[in-house]
Design a binder for these strands. Structure first.
Lengths: 264, 264
DNA sequence: AAGTGGTCTAGACCACTAT
DNA sequence: TAGTGGTCTAGACCACTTT
C-alpha cells in the first residue's frame, strides 16, 4: 500500500522520469524521442501497448503539439511504433521485414583516399552483343566501352569492377576519370555524377578462376556480386556492370528494435 | 529573343509549373515533395544546384514555413538533398553508400499463410559448447535448445533455419510455436515477440551437402546466410542462429536517386 | 546586414475511433 | 460525443553563411 501511494506520484519518485532540458544543445524533439525510446527499451511500454496520447505528452513535457508530433513521426519512421488515427500510438514488435542494411561499408573504404587505389585493368571499345545491347537499350553491334577495374585497399585487391558504357564519340574518356574520380564520386558523392538514378541488385555467387586470380584468392570461394545499371537524365541507361567482392571481405550488418547504440 | 521574353514569365507559360491543390486527398507537403522531385528528375535542378529558399517556396506555393520545412525534411531523409544552415538546400548526386536494402522480400513470402509451411526438422536439448555459450552469454555445458526448421513455399524448400535458444525450464516449448507462429511473427510482426532487439549479418556462402539436400539442390551452390542474435528486455541474448537460402532464390534490390516509381 | 535553414509555439480544423 | 492522430497556419527566435 505504501508502494501504491508512491506510484500515484511515480513521475517524480519511482521512475525518475526525465524532463526536457531547455538549455541543452539537443533539440526538444530529439530529447523526447530518446525519452520515449528509453521507456520502450526498459519495458515501460511493451509491444502492443499504447503510448500516452499526444496531448498527454504535450502536457507532461510542456511541449507544443507540433513538437510532440515531430518526435512521434521519428519513432514512426524508425519502425518502432505504429499510429492509428483516432485510436493511438502503439509500440511495434521488432519485425524482420523491416530490417534495413546499407552499403555504408563502402563509404569507409573510400573515406581515406590514401589507402584506396584504383587500377584500370582494361579499357576497350567493342560491339554490343545481345545481352549488352538489351541492358543498355541500344542496338546489337553498336559500339560500347568496356572498363575493367580493380580496387585496392592498402595494396590488397578488394573489389573487382566491370562495366559497359554507352560509347559517346563526343565525350571522350578522360584518363583521370578512369583512375579514381568516377568511382570515388560514385561512392562518396563529391564529384559531379552523370547519371540521375540507378538500380542495384545484390546476389550471392562463387568466384570464377579469373575473379579469384584478380582478388588474390582461390576459385570457388563465396562472393557478393552487386549488379548495377545507371540512367541519365533522359532515363536512358548509360552504364551496366557489376562489382565482385570476396565473401570473406564483406559483411552487411543491420539491427532491429532498439539497438544499444542510439542514433541520437 | 522571343524565347527570353517568354522565359521571363516561365512559371506560367514555359514549364507549366504545378501548384498545390487544396482539394486533393494528398496532403500539401506530399504534393510539394513530388513537385520538387519532378523538377529534380527533369533536370531543372541539377546535382549541386541550390533549391529555392524556404521562404521563396512559401511564397510560390502559398504554404506556411512549417509545411515547406516538412517537405524538405522528407527530401533530406530520402537522401536527395543536403541542407546547409545559413546557405541553402542543395541537390545531392546519387551516392552508392546511401543505398538501402531491406528484407522486405521476406514479407512477401510470409504474406499468404496458405502457401508457406514450416517443417520442424529437429528439436533437441543439448549442452552448450564454447561457441554457443559465447554467443548466448551463458556457460559451457549449460543446457540450450537447438531447433532446426525448414520453410516451404508451395511445398518447395526455400529457407533453412537453425537456432540455439536459452533453455528455460519454466517456459516449456510450445508445440504450436515451433510450427508457424514464431517464425511468422518474426517476419510479419503479428504475434507477440519475446525479444526487444536483434542484430543481423548477411554473408555470402556456399551450400554444404546437408544444406543442399535440405534445400533440394546440389552442393557447392552460392547461398546467403543471415546470422541473427536476439536479445530480451534485459538485453540478454535469447536466440542465436542463422537462415540459409539458395542464392538463386533470393535477390536484394535497391535504387538510388529518383526511381521511376515514386514512393508517394 | 541580409538571407538562409533549424526549432518551436499555440492554436485551428479535420478524419477517424471508441463508447 | 469525446478523444485520438493528421494536417496546417502565421508567426517567433536562433545560429549560421554570405556579401
Amino acid at each position: 500500500m505504501n508502494k501504491s501511494s508512491i506510484n500515484s506520484n511515480k513521475s517524480n519518485i519511482i521512475s525518475q522520469e526525465k524532463s526536457i532540458n531547455r538549455q541543452s544543445f539537443e533539440p526538444a524533439y530529439i530529447q523526447l524521442v530518446n525519452i520515449l525510446k528509453e521507456q520502450i527499451a526498459k519495458g515501460v511500454y511493451l509491444p502492443g501497448d499504447r503510448l500516452p496520447s499526444e496531448s498527454e505528452l504535450c502536457e507532461k513535457y510542456q511541449l507544443s503539439p507540433m513538437t510532440v508530433r515531430r518526435s512521434i513521426n521519428i519513432l514512426l519512421n524508425q519502425g518502432l511504433v505504429t499510429t492509428i488515427q483516432g485510436s493511438g500510438t502503439y509500440v511495434k514488435p521488432p519485425v524482420l521485414s523491416n530490417v534495413i542494411f546499407t552499403l555504408g561499408e563502402f563509404y569507409n573504404i573510400f573515406k581515406d583516399k590514401e589507402r584506396t587505389k584504383v587500377r584500370v585493368l582494361e579499357v576497350l571499345i567493342l560491339k554490343a552483343d545481345e545481352i549488352i545491347a538489351n541492358k543498355l537499350e541500344t542496338n546489337i553491334e553498336e559500339r560500347v566501352i568496356l572498363i575493367r577495374r580493380l580496387l585496392l585497399r592498402d595494396g590488397d585487391p578488394f573489389l573487382y569492377h566491370m562495366e559497359y558504357l554507352i560509347y559517346d564519340p563526343y565525350r571522350p574518356i578522360v584518363e583521370a576519370e578512369l583512375e579514381i574520380i568516377s568511382l570515388h564520386g560514385l561512392f562518396i558523392g563529391t564529384s559531379e555524377t552523370k547519371f540521375k538514378r540507378g538500380d542495384l541488385t545484390i546476389e550471392a555467387s562463387i568466384l570464377t578462376k579469373e575473379e579469384a586470380d584478380l582478388l588474390n584468392t582461390i576459385p570457388m570461394q563465396p562472393a557478393f556480386r552487386i549488379e548495377h545499371i545507371f540512367f541519365d537524365f533522359e532515363d536512358r541507361p548509360v552504364s551496366w556492370g557489376r562489382f565482385t567482392c570476396r565473401g570473406d571481405r564483406l559483411r552487411f550488418n543491420a539491427s532491429i528494435g532498439l539497438s544499444k547504440r542510439q542514433t541520437f
